[in-house]
Nucleic acid binder design. Structure first.
Length: 508
RNA sequence: GGGCGCAUAGCUCAGUCGGUAGAGCAACUGGCUUUUAACCAGUAGGUCCCAGGUUCGACCCCUGGUGCGCUCACCA
């Protein structure tokens, strides 16, 4: 038992068992959803076909208003709330005429099934006048305060199973999240895409630049990494001839947490043979604009207090133009001017990382915060894009874009690099530049796949959590994750001491 | 990792310029057959996050720690 349990409720449970009532019956009931009852009830001016009919609903009793011989109680299920009215006289004429004294066993938070006639109160509220009340599951932990719900953020994230029914609007965010995923799946399948699943355990890191979580497989005696991106596996499938593939990939990055970073997060990645990065722009804007229209009924959204329109097409701007615009006309090609600008901003990179890395840092510092968007930033410097195809018009740039909304990076896409020799070169360069303390090696097998020939292809990655944030107006990624990553709660001081190898806890 | 803030009843929150803690909701007892955060009367419920320190006395002040939030840094 936990410290949440309430002694009064435990005593009540014992009394119920003495009275022969099973507080945790094995079977559920056939119930109509609250939303369907509302639909069938109509309005008091225009009553629906369910008025006067006997209906059954099942859900959580959110409270009671007890008038002695009449009790009103709102019942909530996944679709909404409906009031039931339990009257002494009516219950005594029902199938359980001796039930009335058992009302004392009910508490706010209990799960119940109610059967009765649908009607109205004197004030015109749709109400089921109960004839039978069945306890479905006794709540031993008392619910949060009925008006405020759960307000403490820590409690909300740790006990989402309470937050979901006790706090206004929380369930809707996750219903919307599910609909967004569903919309995307339908959209891509409509364009001939195949949903695939690729490994989460990677022997070689790749597809992004991030610190990994490491693990070990015992039977193979092999180090493995939780994937930081599915990219290289999905492109192997393009080599394999599947031509149009997507995956909702849970990725893992061993980095800091913030209001837009969680150690595990969901990335949609998709790859299409014969397409290029301009095609990926069209897919991005059509998909996002369509999701907003279908699910929200509008493309006008509010995020972090600002209004945005996600109506396609989105604005497109070149990386070098934006750089010059926000840096007093400094050209990204002018190494001395960029260095001076970086110094002025206090931006530094490790020595030896070179000019283009510095350009990237200055860009992040000066341009990104202004990208309200939605806007596609196109043609990134090829030097910082190891997996993208260089622009044939000018190979200094890559055929790549990132999509920004509200200053937040939402998507990243390119025309995929399919030249195995150039890919090998870029991988080797990348490995040479990296911090020797961090894992990373050339993915020889991936290069080998390219040697068999990968068709020209466009690829796109969309941060699903961030997209959901934007479309549901949530400021923090934690509010669109059912169970955001949290530090483990230490039960006592001993558990802290045992983190020291030399300490042995007597409790264990 | 840095800075700032928060931690008091199951929940939402007051409070004490240092003298041993309160309200509303939830629970319990009683009353009430049309409420909408029902109402009325009463009862019970606390390691004031943890550990030290200062003090005659600490929930309050100091130090350290833990958890969370915000923010900065990190983050192709």
């Amino acid at each position: 038992m936990t410290d949440l349990i309430h002694p009064d409720r435990l005593a009540k449970l014992a009394r119920m068992r003495e009275a022969g009532i099973d507080p945790y019956p094995a079977r559920g009931v056939q119930a109509t959803s609250v939303a369907d009852v509302h639909k069938g009830g109509g309005t008091s001016e225009e009553p629906g076909e369910l008025i006067g009919q006997t209906v059954t609903i099942a859900g959580r009793m959110m409270g009671t208003r007890d008038f002695g011989k009449l009790i009103f109680a709102p019942i909530q299920d996944r679709t909404g709330r409906l009031q039931v009215g339990i009257q002494k006289g009516r219950m005594e004429k029902g199938p359980t005429p001796d039930w009335w004294p058992q009302r004392k066993f009910l508490d706010a938070g209990d799960l119940v099934a109610i059967t009765g006639e649908l009607g109205w109160t004197q004030k015109g509220e749709l109400t089921i006048w109960a004839e039978e009340v069945k306890l479905q599951s006794k709540a031993l932990a008392p619910p949060p305060e009925k008006f405020h719900g759960l307000a403490d953020k820590e409690a909300r994230y740790r006990r989402r199973y309470v937050d979901l029914w006790a706090s206004e609007g929380v369930r809707d965010v996750f219903i919307t999240r599910s609909r967004i995923l569903s919309h995307i799946r339908t959209f891509l399948e409509g364009r001939g895409y195949l949903e695939v699943e690729t490994p989460t355990l990677h022997p070689v890191l790749g597809g992004a630049n991030a610190l990994p979580f490491s693990t070990h497989h015992n039977a193979l005696d092999m180090e493995l990494f939780l994937r930081i991106a599915p990219e290289l596996y999905l492109k192997r499938l393009i080599v394999g001839g599947l031509e149009r593939v997507f995956e909702f990939a849970r990725n893992f990055r061993n980095e800091g947490l913030s209001n837009r970073h969680n150690p595990e997060f969901t990335m949609l990645e998709l790859y299409e043979a014969q397409a290029d990065f301009t095609h990926m722009m069209e897919i991005s804007e059509t998909m996002i604009s369509g999701a907003a229209t279908d699910i929200l009924g509008t493309t006008e959204i509010v995020f972090r207090g600002e209004n945005y329109s996600v109506q396609a097409p989105f604005q497109r701007e070149r990386y070098d133009d934006l750089f010059a615009k926000h840096n007093n006309g400094v050209s990204i090609h002018d190494e001395a001017a960029v260095a001076a600008r970086a110094k002025e901003l206090g931006v530094t990179v490790a020595p030896g990382l070179g000019h283009w890395k510095l350009v990237g840092e200055v860009f992040d510092e000066t341009v990104e915060p202004h990208l309200g968007g939605p806007i596609f930033v196109t043609h990134y410097p090829a030097a910082i894009c190891p997996l993208a195809k260089p622009d044939p018009e000018n190979p200094v740039f890559a055929e790549r874009f990132e999509l920004f909304i509200g200053g937040m990076e939402l998507a990243n896409a390119f025309s995929e690099l399919n030249d195995p020799l150039l890919q090998m070169e870029k991988f080797e360069e990348q490995v040479a530049m990296k911090d020797p303390e961090t894992p990373g090696e050339v993915d020889v097998d991936y290069v080998q796949a390219l040697e068999y020939g990968m068709p020209p292809a466009g690829g796109l990655g969309i941060g699903i959590d961030r997209l959901v944030m934007v479309l549901t107006g949530q400021d923090s990624i934690r509010d669109v994750l059912l169970f955001p990553t949290m530090r483990r709660q230490s039960a006592n001081d001993e558990s802290i001491e045992t983190s020291d190898d030399s300490a042995v806890s007597p409790a264990e």
